[in-house]
Amino acid sequence: MEVTFKVYRYNPEVDEKPHYEKYTLDMSDDGVILDALNKIKWEIDGSLSYRRSCRHGICGSCAIKLNGKNVLACKTSIKEAVEMFGDTLVIEPLSKNKEKVIKDLVNDKKDFWDKNAKVKPYLIAEIDEHPKSENLIKPALVEMIEEADYCIACGCCYYACESVRANKDFLGPQALAKTYRFTADVRDEAKKERLELVDKLGIGIWDCVKCQACIEVCPKGVDPFTKITHLHNQVFEEGVAKRNVATKHAEGFVHSIKKHGILDEGMLVLYSEGVNVVRHMPEAMAMFMKGKIKLPWQMPKSEGLEEIQKLIEISQTHELKD
């Protein structure tokens, strides 16, 4: 199978700007992208730089961008990639920000690892230094972690995240999923401390824009977005959530659905922001003229409202403030 690989090349020490080089290779049908990178480096151009280690989808070091999607080079079939993207495959680093490119496909991931370290990605508990048996927990309690421990810290989700791109302080989906891995672990004794960190505006769970790109690119099926949603619930359940525009926005959803069965977008903003809602008046008027929002007395009630209210009562885990 003849395939053309268009590879991102950039050496800050000698190149004025990045460029792409094309390599046409004869690859076997069962080959993966890492095989192509190895073949280029070993047989054609030894100056090509990229990261690799285990080749088994465990270390996460070979994460790259393939035709715009973050993937693991060692787990991505060339044949399937050609079927999806055509016979020219574009290989780039996870971030093309020139300040983050060390060389070619190798990124400086210091920001990623700093945020990973910030959430203390390890069990915190007072334990016997010389235990005589394992600290076992029941299977049902293990299931509460929901595969968050499958994360290999490859960075695919982090470098696909729109919130990270817009806000350099945002912890990102990997660090937040890692936080949930321990807040869901009954053996961990730092749950409140962890939740207090991710509850902070500007860096934590409230700054996720719910684009769900992290779900699409995670090679291990961790689903960071759902873990972030669980953290939203936990900060309320544990009494950690601070009263601010973000938490009021979350509560406003419940109030609105409980009252109407559907979302009252206009009142949601008013509930969330109070008097500061005046800054949104131009947008509110435009939405009103388009029928996107309604006046309070115009709001319809959903069919089966009583059933919806019962479901909320059953599932609600904390008391809402008025």
Score class of each variant (00 low, 15 high):
residue 3 V to T: 00
residue 3 V to P: 00
residue 6 K to H: 14
residue 15 D to F: 01
residue 18 P to D: 02
residue 21 E to P: 00
residue 26 D to L: 10
residue 28 S to K: 10
residue 30 D to V: 03
residue 37 L to T: 00
residue 40 I to P: 00
residue 42 W to E: 15
residue 43 E to M: 02
residue 44 I to N: 05
residue 48 L to R: 01
residue 50 Y to T: 00
residue 68 G to A: 10
residue 73 A to G: 09
residue 81 A to Y: 14
residue 84 M to R: 14
residue 90 V to R: 11
residue 92 E to C: 05
residue 94 L to R: 03
residue 96 K to F: 03
residue 100 K to M: 09
residue 103 K to I: 15
residue 104 D to V: 08
residue 104 D to N: 09
residue 104 D to T: 05
residue 114 D to F: 07
residue 115 K to Y: 07
residue 124 I to P: 04
residue 126 E to G: 02
residue 137 I to D: 06
residue 137 I to H: 07
residue 145 I to D: 02
residue 145 I to Q: 10
residue 147 E to S: 13
residue 148 A to L: 05
residue 148 A to R: 03
residue 149 D to V: 10
residue 152 I to P: 01
residue 158 Y to Q: 08
residue 160 A to S: 15
residue 160 A to E: 09
residue 161 C to R: 01
residue 164 V to K: 01
residue 172 G to N: 05
residue 189 E to Y: 06
residue 192 K to Y: 06
residue 198 V to P: 03
residue 202 G to N: 09
residue 204 G to V: 00
residue 205 I to C: 03
residue 207 D to V: 06
residue 207 D to K: 08
residue 208 C to P: 02
residue 211 C to K: 02
residue 215 I to L: 11
residue 217 V to E: 00
residue 223 D to V: 02
residue 223 D to F: 06
residue 223 D to S: 04
residue 226 T to K: 14
residue 228 I to D: 09
residue 229 T to W: 08
residue 230 H to Q: 11
residue 236 F to T: 01
residue 236 F to R: 02
residue 241 A to Q: 03
residue 242 K to A: 11
residue 242 K to S: 11
residue 251 E to Q: 13
residue 254 V to N: 05
residue 260 H to L: 15
residue 261 G to T: 09
residue 270 L to H: 11
residue 272 S to V: 07
residue 280 H to E: 06
residue 294 K to Q: 15
residue 296 P to D: 10
residue 298 Q to L: 14
residue 299 M to H: 13
residue 300 P to Q: 12
residue 303 E to M: 10
residue 304 G to A: 09
residue 304 G to R: 10
residue 305 L to S: 04
residue 308 I to K: 04
residue 314 I to D: 13
residue 316 Q to E: 12
residue 320 L to E: 11
residue 320 L to A: 04
residue 321 K to V: 05
